[in-house]
Design a protein around this nucleic acid. Structure first.
Length: 601
DNA sequence: CCCCCCCC
């Protein structure tokens, strides 16, 4: 098998020229900085004639190296790249190539050897070599130095700034300060003030990105005033003359080891050129059902349809006493998964979910609380409603053509609120034999069962709108609702569920009670949705309770004998109800069969 | 120079 490397392409590129989709061989790779999400790799590449370790992999391609797809000796076509002159302290300039897109033409194992006899490229070989044949480029390369004076940039027509003059964000470092980036604003914070032992002031920060990477920039005091109004989310700007410093990883999830601070010299010019509408955001969407497998604190991108949005909640953080506003939004996608995304502050307040918008989220944090996972927005999280993305249009089509009615597994369903106690798998007969529920604290167990009947009467009620209070309200028939527990009247309420049902398994049956979240999981609808049906569509409401009959769930029960006056009875509450994981259920069956029969396979 | 990213 022959592999045609683009001989001489490396020389052209090193001299600042352009070469369309050069084919090169990877001879080695090396991690140069960071770890985890902030890893960055350098590649030793060869065009068959020369080799050079000047190539850096854009972070979104890191996976190709980590998975071994991009192994040594592999032959690749570099579909997209940018080069940048870095000023090396004391050693003049060095050009780096940042690889943005790559096609692997042959794997390292298929090629198995170094192709040709490439010589290490050096300035000397450049001098010795005949003038490189440059492929036509629109304009001669202009070095950033020429536009380093702020006055020049301020007054210039930004269209003269060609792509070749700007630096990839990924190449920025504190060691060289002559650069211009062309970046799109992903996020902009509100103005914040601070006051501490070291002084006081105000600031705002913005997250910027281009094709090569992302970086946070902060403007303090004067710069805060100067740039706050100008900087607008989603717009593209040329930015130069900022101070770079090491980013404190404790406070950022952006994939950059550095961050920028605006200074008095900082120059910002909006890029209005249509052709410069790039860069666009790079998402790495995970199907919602796959998020269940991820560990908490992962930062994930997700796209889904807003199936429901809870009311705005105001709460006071116990630890800080801070007043917080949040809104929980449930996203679903065609993977059949659903997940809660928590919005905070102004974003929570202004959110409007009644039109079921498609929501694209970049950089949300996966959190786990009491065993259930959900996503939470951070300051650095970027959220877009109905973005013009292929994935968004696909989801819209899916949702509007049946997806809305698809059953989804809500991975944020509340689960496992146990305070100790075992979580063993039992049948109803087992539970009875063990006399579960007779103790002081109540007993917990898991059971695979079928919902044989649901009581639709009084399954939904108007509850106190206060966050912590779920008390049933008394309708005053004057537009107000009274909460006996809070001892006050409200003009509003929230719907909550209290579902009575019968569950059967092969050994028996049990009357159970499911509170709000568990009932939502069983009915596949939020309390608000059920409330809507109850208020406006009694037929659909009745239908809902019919449809859920004979569905199988994995139940987690709490059971306890309770006494009302003289009468005692076993009260079984659904802690949560989840769809059946058949693989898991079957392995449990097989295990039981083995232990009962003594047959080992 | 900030550094909060939350709550049950």
């Amino acid at each position: 098998m022959d592999y045609n490397l683009s001989e001489g392409s490396l020389q052209t590129i090193m001299n600042g020229g352009h070469y369309e989709k050069p084919v090169m061989q990877v001879l080695g790779s090396k991690k140069i900085q960071g770890s985890g999400a902030n890893e960055r790799f350098r590649l030793l590449v060869s065009d068959g004639k020369h080799s050079h370790s000047f190539a850096m992999l854009a972070t979104q391609l890191n996976d190709k190296l980590i998975t071994g797809e991009l192994s040594d000796y592999s032959v690749v076509q570099i579909d997209r790249f940018v080069t940048s002159l870095l000023k090396n302290t004391g050693k003049g300039e060095k050009r780096v190539m940042i690889i943005l897109d790559i096609t692997i033409l042959a794997s390292g194992t298929d090629v198995g050897k170094k192709l040709g006899n490439p010589q290490t490229w050096s300035e000397d070989s450049a001098a010795a070599a005949p003038a490189p044949v440059m492929q036509p480029v629109p304009k001669p390369t202009v070095q950033p130095m020429q536009i380093s004076k702020p006055s020049t940039v301020t007054g210039m027509n930004t269209s003269i700034l060609s792509a070749q003059m700007t630096h990839p964000i990924a190449s920025l470092s504190p060691y060289q300060n002559k650069w211009v980036i062309k970046a799109r604003v992903m996020n902009k914070s509100p103005i914040r003030t601070w006051s501490n032992a070291r002084g006081e002031g105000k600031l705002f920060s913005m997250d910027l990105f281009d094709e090569s990477g992302e970086i946070r920039a902060t403007a303090f005091k004067n710069e805060c005033d100067k740039f706050y109004d100008m900087i607008q989310v989603d717009k593209v700007y040329y930015i130069s003359r900022c101070q770079l410093k090491t980013a404190n990883k404790q406070f950022t999830t952006l994939k950059n080891d550095y961050e920028m601070t605006f200074t008095a010299d900082t120059v910002v010019a909006e890029c209005t050129d249509d052709m410069s509408a790039l860069p666009s955001v790079k998402y790495d969407f995970l199907p919602i059902n796959s998020i269940a497998e991820k560990s908490p604190d992962n930062i994930v991108d997700v796209i889904g349809v807003c199936k429901s949005a809870a009311d705005l909640q105001e709460l006071t953080a116990k630890s800080t006493g801070k007043l917080l506003k949040k809104r929980e939004v449930t996203l679903v996608d065609s993977s059949g998964g659903g997940i809660v995304l928590t919005l905070w502050g102004a974003e929570a307040e202004k959110f409007e979910g009644s039109t079921n918008p498609v929501i694209a989220v970049k950089g949300a944090r996966l959190t786990e609380f009491n065993g259930s996972k959900s996503l939470s927005c951070l300051a650095s999280t970027m959220m877009r409603l109905n973005p013009d993305l292929p994935e968004a249009h696909k989801l819209r089509g899916w949702y509007d053509n049946g997806g809305a009615d698809m059953e989804t597994v809500n991975i944020s369903a509340k689960s496992g609120l146990y305070s100790g106690g075992s979580n063993e798998w039992l049948s109803f007969a087992d539970a009875e034999a063990k006399q579960l529920g007779s103790g002081e604290k109540g007993d917990y167990y898991s059971l695979l069962g079928v919902l044989t009947f649901t009581f639709s009467d009084n399954a939904v009620y108007k509850a106190c709108p206060q966050e912590q209070c779920n008390k049933k309200l008394v309708d005053q028939d004057n537009g107000l609702f009274r909460c006996e527990k809070c001892n006050r009247e409200y003009p509003n309420y929230k719907h909550r569920l209290l579902l009575g049902a019968n569950v059967s398994d092969p050994t028996g049956d049990q009357r159970i009670t499911a509170f709000n979240e568990a009932a939502e999981a069983m009915l596949g609808k939020t309390a608000a949705e059920v409330g809507q049906l109850f208020d406006y569509d009694k037929n659909a409401y009745a239908q809902l309770f019919e449809e859920v009959k004979f569905k199988t769930f994995v139940f987690k029960f709490r059971t306890k004998i309770e006494t009302y006056s003289d009468e005692t009875r076993l009260k079984t509450t659904v802690m949560n109800a989840q769809p059946v994981d058949y693989k898991d259920a079957n392995s449990r069956l097989i295990k039981n069969i083995k232990s009962i029969t003594g047959v080992q396979v």
